[in-house]
Design a protein around this nucleic acid. Structure first.
Length: 426
RNA sequence: GGAGGGUUGGCCGAGUGGUUGAAGGCACCGGUCUUGAAAACCGGCAUACUGAGAGGUAUCUAGGGUUCGAAUCCCUAACCCUCCGCCA
C-alpha cells in the first residue's frame, strides 16, 4: 500500500506507475481516492469539533453537578443530546469512508523501481544472468518421478489414497536428501549472519488478511474448521506477521531471519495440481529469508538476497539463471522482484525455484510495521526470498546430479548432511 | 476441557464514573553544579489523525454496550497467571 500523501501530492506519478503496469482500469481509483479522502477529512474535522464540544460540555455538567446546580446541568444535557444525535449521523460516514479508501488503496499498485523493465506479462520478463554450465547429456534424462521411484524414494499412489493428489510420501535416501538440503540451507543462511527461526505454522485470520489479498486467501489458504486459524502458505506469513503493529528501535535494524516451515497451498486457480510429481503440490517445506531494514538499505539487501540463493544452488552444482520480473508481471505490493530459476537438463529449459522480492515500505505501511529513531517513527522496508523449497528443487537436483550409470552424485557441500556419502546408489 | 485472578505509557506501578493522556518510580535525553564523573536539583520524554498556528480528536489488550461523561460499570473475544483434568 502506498502513502496516501503521495496520491494527494503527486497523483500523476501514481497514474504513470499504473500505466507502466498495464492496469489502466485502475486509473480512476486515484481520483476516487482523492475525492473520498477530501470527504473523509471534512467529515472528521466536523466530528472532531462536535466531540470537542461534547467533551467540554460534559466537563461543565460535572462541575455543575458538584455545585448541586442540577437544573443548569439538565439544560446542558439536552444540548449534549443534540450533539450526540449529529455525531450519530456522521458515524456511518466516518466508518464507511476509510473502508472505501482502504479498498481502493489496497489495489493501487506500489511504485515500482525505475530499473524494472517494462512489459505486459511473464513473457516479457528479462533474463539477468546465467550461472554455471547448462549441460545437456547425450543420454535421456528421466522424469524426476521416475528417478525417485528407481530409488524407491517416492510413493504417490499411497499419498493419493491417504490425502489426494498434490501430496507425496518421500522415503529412504530421497527423503533424507530432502531433509539434508533443508538442514544445509539453514546452516548456509546462519553462516551468512541470519537468525534461524521456526515460526507458527498456523495463523489467525487477522494476520492472513493483513499479509495477503482476499483473492490470494481464497486460492491459497487452508482453514482449520471451527477455529480462527489458517495453515500458512509460506513462513513469510508468520514471519512478517510477527512485526504487525509494532515499533522497532532503529538500532535493532536490520532484522534478518531465515525461517523454516512446511507450507500449505490449495493452489486453486490458473494451474492447479496438474503436473505429475512434486513440482506443484499442496504441501512442501521451505527455507526462507526475510529482512526488515532501513529504507536506504533495501536495494543492497535485494541484491544480496538473490545472490545468496544463486550461491546456494551453485554449491549444489545446479546451473541457475536470474530472471527479472517486468512491470506488468510484478505483484502490486512489490517494488522489484527477481526469480531464481534452475536448469532442467531433461526439458532443456529453466524453471522457477525461488522468488526474491523487495516490497519497499508498502508491506510495512499496510501492516503498521514501524521503526523508531530520534526523529520519530517511519516505515522500514521489507524483503523476502526463497532459500530453497526442497520438493521442487529436488527436480533440479536429481536431473543435474544424476550420473550416466544411474547414481546420484552428492555435491561436497551436502555430503556431511548425507552421512558422508558421495553417491546415492540403488 | 473446568474454576478463579489478571492485562494501564520503553519498563514497574497508582488509579473503581467527572479538568486523568493518565500520579509516583525506573530507564532515557537536555541543563545547573563539578577539574571530570557520580550524587543532587531543574526541565523534557507515547502513538496516530487533523489544523498555518494556538489547538482539537482518538487510543489505558481488542470489539460492542450503559452514561451528559468510561482506564474505571456491563457483554464478548484474545492473551497471561494459579489450581484441577487430559495429553505428545
Amino acid at each position: 500500500m502506498i502513502d496516501i500523501r503521495l496520491i494527494r501530492s503527486n497523483p500523476e506519478l501514481v497514474k504513470e506507475n499504473i500505466r507502466k503496469k498495464f492496469q489502466d482500469e485502475k486509473l480512476p481509483l486515484v481520483d476516487e481516492v482523492i475525492a473520498l479522502d477530501k470527504q473523509l477529512r471534512e467529515c472528521k474535522t466536523k466530528a472532531d469539533t462536535l466531540r470537542g464540544q461534547r467533551n467540554s460540555l460534559s466537563k461543565e455538567i460535572g462541575n455543575l453537578m458538584m455545585q448541586k446546580k442540577i437544573e443548569e446541568a439538565e439544560t446542558i444535557k439536552t444540548q449534549v443530546a443534540e450533539i450526540a444525535q449529529q455525531l450519530e449521523d456522521l458515524k456511518e460516514l466516518e466508518l464507511d469512508l476509510p473502508e472505501q479508501i482502504r479498498q481502493r488503496m489496497m489495489v493501487i499498485p506500489n511504485i515500482i523501481d525505475e530499473t524494472v523493465p517494462l512489459g505486459k506479462d511473464d513473457s516479457e520478463n528479462v533474463e539477468v544472468e546465467r550461472y554455471g554450465e547448462m549441460i545437456v547429456p547425450d543420454y535421456e534424462v528421466p522424469y524426476h518421478i521416475d528417478i525417485m521411484e528407481s530409488f524407491q524414494g517416492i510413493d504417490l499412489d499411497s499419498a493419493r489414497k491417504t490425502s489426494g493428489s498434490g501430496f507425496y510420501y518421500l522415503t529412504g535416501d530421497i527423503a533424507r536428501l530432502h531433509s539434508a538440503i533443508l538442514t544445509y540451507a539453514r546452516d548456509f543462511m546462519i553462516d551468512k549472519g541470519f537468525t534461524y527461526c521456526i515460526p507458527p505454522f498456523m495463523i489467525r485470520s487477522g494476520v492472513v488478511t493483513g499479509v495477503m489479498s482476499f483473492a490470494e486467501m481464497e486460492n491459497m489458504m487452508y482453514k482449520i474448521e471451527g477455529e480462527d486459524l489458517y495453515l500458512i502458505g509460506t513462513s513469510e506469513h508468520s514471519m512478517i506477521g510477527k512485526f504487525i503493529d509494532s515499533i522497532t528501535p532503529e538500532e535493532d535494524l536490520p532484522i534478518a531471519y531465515t525461517s523454516y516451515s512446511p507450507c500449505f497451498r490449495k493452489e486453486v486457480g490458473a494451474h492447479g495440481i496438474e503436473e505429475r510429481g512434486v513440482y506443484r503440490v499442496h504441501q512442501f517445506e521451505k527455507q526462507e529469508m526475510i529482512v526488515v531494514c532501513h529504507p536506504d538499505d533495501s536495494k543492497a539487501w535485494f541484491e544480496k538476497f538473490y545472490q545468496y540463493t544463486v550461491e546456494f544452488f551453485r554449491s549444489l552444482l545446479i546451473p541457475v539463471r536470474t530472471l527479472e520480473c517486468c512491470s506488468g508481471d510484478l505483484a502490486d505490493l512489490k517494488v522489484k522482484s527477481v526469480d531464481v530459476e534452475a536448469w532442467s537438463p531433461r526439458q532443456q529449459k529453466f524453471f522457477e525455484v525461488g522468488s526474491c522480492s523487495n516490497l519497499g515500505d508498502a508491506q510495512a505501511r499496510r501492516l503498521a510495521i514501524r521503526a523508531r529513531n530520534e526523529n520519530g517513527t517511519y516505515f522500514p522496508h521489507t524483503l523476502n526470498n526463497t532459500v530453497v523449497a526442497p520438493p521442487r528443487m529436488l527436480i533440479a537436483f536429481l536431473e543435474n546430479n544424476l550420473t550416466e550409470d544411474g547414481k546420484i552424485r552428492i555435491p561436497e557441500s551436502l555430503q556431511m548432511y548425507m552421512g558422508g556419502k558421495e553417491f546415492i546408489e540403488k
